[in-house]
């Protein structure tokens, strides 16, 4: 697979604060990360991890501060940069009524990737053999792996992951860590909201 990270991406956050429903949930966050790095955002439940990730993704407007994405040191507006982002949200964007394969085929079309990519991706997230199962019949951990397959399929330099290891067992955590590790060693950038440590070289941001 060709490298998707030939351009250097980076993110600079200064004194960022964001609110949910008019109440400030996280404030005064500053950091800078670039390609080849993983940053884990730690915090208790309700500390604002998901909100911060939502703000980084451009989904939640900032209350204060600035947030700048850059490609090769050229700062780009969020809307222009966003085609570099692959986002794993809390809900995995899975249609339970469709099979594993049909779910991934939909995203293949959205990302304009050939369906021949699927076999290797399904193997990398270790759900091979389940392609024809209805997604609604998968276990919670298998569902999470299926949503992670979409991140690999998107093939984008920036990964924003919200609790990627939720309901995943120890072996799965190691698998996900390895995938994130592989991504950053390819020059990608990963920002991960998590409440448990992952086995990847990373920088930490504690909030709340």
């Amino acid at each position: 697979m060709k490298s998707i990270c030939s351009d250097k991406v980076s993110l600079q956050c200064d004194e960022v604060a964001c609110a949910r429903g008019g109440v400030m949930v996280v404030g005064g966050v500053s950091f800078a990360v670039g390609g080849g790095e993983a940053m884990l955002i730690f915090g208790a439940n309700g500390a604002g991890k998901s909100s911060l990730l939502g703000a980084i993704a451009g989904r939640i407007p900032l209350m204060e501060g600035t947030l700048n994405w850059a490609v090769n040191d050229d700062v780009l507006p969020q809307r222009q940069f966003a085609s570099n982002i692959a986002m794993l949200s809390h809900d995995g964007a899975i249609k339970t009524g469709l099979s594993v394969e049909q779910n991934l085929l939909f995203w293949c079309r959205i990302y304009n990737k050939p369906r021949t990519d699927l076999a290797s991706i399904v193997e990398r997230v270790k759900i091979s053999g389940l392609e024809h199962r209805r997604a609604g019949t998968l276990s919670a951990g298998q569902m999470r792996r299926l949503s992670f397959a979409r991140i690999l399929l998107a093939d984008r330099p920036v990964w924003l992951l919200d609790e990627p290891t939720a309901s995943i067992d120890d072996g799965g955590r190691a698998d996900i860590s390895a995938l994130i590790g592989g991504h950053i060693s390819d020059g990608g950038l990963a920002i991960v909201a998590t409440h448990e440590a992952l086995d990847v070289p990373h920088r930490s941001l504690r909030i709340g």
Binding site: A57, R59, M87, H90, D91
Partner: peptide
Amino acid sequence: IQDGSLQTLAVEQT
């Protein structure tokens, strides 16, 4: 909206 598909599409600038 409930299963996060729309959010994902919007964030990723589809």
